[in-house]
Computed example of a mutant assay.
Amino acid sequence: MSEQPVDPELRAPADDAEALQLLRDGEIDLEGRLLDASNVTLVGAVRTATLAAECVYKPVAGERPLWDFPDGTLAGREISAFLVSEAMGWQVVPPTVLRDGPFGPGMVQLWIDGDEDVDLPAFVRRDDPALRRMAVFDAVVNNADRKGGHIIPTPAGHVYGVDHGICFSIDPKLRTLLWRWAGKPLPAEAVAVLERLGDELRGDLGEELHEHLTRREVRTTQQRVAELLRTGRHPEPSGEWPALPWPPF
């Protein structure tokens, strides 16, 4: 979670449920913009009468058109990534909601403070269970942009992933720094998670994703899960699409 608020009358969310409540209901007070982001990405504080935290707000109106993704869909893809993350139970994606904000509807996500002592280029090369879970998650959502800067190890030891606006394409677009396990058998933990996820995608989770993705995109997500279970292995670069994001960090 983000750091405790300065205001002594407020406290930071104690868990993800409180964080989601805060993000849905809180008043957003913008403080600045992340200038290195390709789409408009604003940061600020979000507060209710009792809770406060830092947040990231990406208005749909600030999305840059892309040739391979429909206009105005990136916020919905971010929400979809959070829903899949929650269903998998690994908390890869920080608490995220879709709501109205100062510049219209957009994605609002809890700001995560990373561990400044971690050397990211070295960290992403580690055989770390959290990174391996993230690699499985990215294969499910077809993440086209897993840069090093989109990986946030926290001082508490949890590892989050952010910036999931270009996920869920119906075409194979996996681009990631996390190819360490390419072609290797999936851990038993991942197989169990994928089996459960497949069931949920055919049920309530699939219906919830239909609010943000096309039916074909949801169906292709189901197929990616089925293929991972069929092979029992981490995917390998296809050779038809650049395997690494650029820039990598």
Score class of each variant (00 low, 15 high):
Leu205Gln: 05
Leu205Ala: 04
Gly206Leu: 05
Gly206Asn: 06
Gly206Pro: 08
Glu207Cys: 02
Glu207Ala: 11
Glu208Ile: 02
Glu208Lys: 08
Glu208Ala: 12
Glu208Thr: 08
Glu208Cys: 04
Glu208Gly: 00
Glu208Gln: 12
Leu209Phe: 03
His210Ala: 13
His210Gly: 13
His210Pro: 04
His210Cys: 13
His210Ile: 08
His210Leu: 14
Glu211Tyr: 01
Glu211Trp: 03
Glu211Phe: 04
Glu211His: 11
His212Gln: 05
His212Ala: 00
His212Met: 05
His212Phe: 15
His212Cys: 05
Leu213Lys: 00
Leu213Thr: 01
Leu213Trp: 00
Thr214Pro: 09
Thr214Gly: 11
Thr214Met: 04
Thr214Trp: 05
Thr214Arg: 01
Thr214Ser: 15
Thr214Ile: 04
Arg215Gln: 13
Arg215Met: 10
Arg215Ile: 09
Arg216Leu: 14
Arg216His: 10
Arg216Val: 14
Arg216Ser: 08
Arg216Met: 09
Arg216Asp: 14
Arg216Ile: 10
Arg216Pro: 08
Glu217Cys: 04
Glu217His: 04
Glu217Ala: 02
Glu217Pro: 05
Val218Asp: 01
Val218Arg: 00
Val218Ser: 04
Arg219Gly: 10
Arg219Trp: 12
Arg219Gln: 13
Thr220Cys: 08
Thr220Lys: 09
Thr220Arg: 11
Thr220His: 08
Thr220Glu: 15
Thr220Gly: 03
Thr220Ala: 11
Thr221Gln: 03
Thr221Phe: 03
Thr221Lys: 01
Thr221Val: 05
Gln222Ala: 10
Gln222Asp: 09
Gln222Met: 12
Gln223Asn: 13
Gln223Leu: 15
Gln223Met: 13
Arg224Ile: 09
Arg224Asn: 12
Val225Pro: 15
Ala226Arg: 15
Ala226Leu: 10
Glu227Lys: 12
Leu228His: 07
Leu229Met: 09
Leu229Tyr: 07
Arg230Asp: 15
Arg230Asn: 14
Arg230Lys: 15
Arg230Met: 11
Gly232Ser: 11
Gly232Arg: 06
Gly232Ile: 06
Arg233Ala: 13
His234Asn: 09
His234Trp: 14
His234Gln: 10
Pro235Arg: 09
Pro235Val: 14
Pro235Leu: 08
Pro235Asp: 14
Pro235Gln: 10
Pro235His: 12
Pro235Lys: 09
Pro235Tyr: 11
Glu236Asn: 06
Glu236Lys: 10
Glu236Tyr: 06
Pro237His: 00
Ser238Met: 06
Ser238Asp: 12
Gly239Cys: 07
Gly239Ala: 07
Gly239Gln: 07
Glu240Lys: 09
Glu240Arg: 11
Glu240Gln: 13
Glu240Val: 08
Trp241Gly: 09
Trp241Cys: 10
Trp241Gln: 13
Trp241Asp: 12
Trp241Phe: 14
Trp241Pro: 13
Trp241Val: 11
Trp241Leu: 08
Trp241Asn: 12
Pro242His: 00
Pro242Gln: 01
Pro242Glu: 01
Ala243Leu: 02
Ala243Ser: 10
Ala243Ile: 02
Leu244Lys: 05
Pro245His: 04
Trp246Thr: 06
Trp246Phe: 15
Trp246Asn: 02
Trp246Cys: 02
Trp246Pro: 04
Pro247Leu: 07
Pro247Arg: 05
Pro247Ile: 06
Pro247Asp: 05
Pro247Phe: 06
Pro247Cys: 06
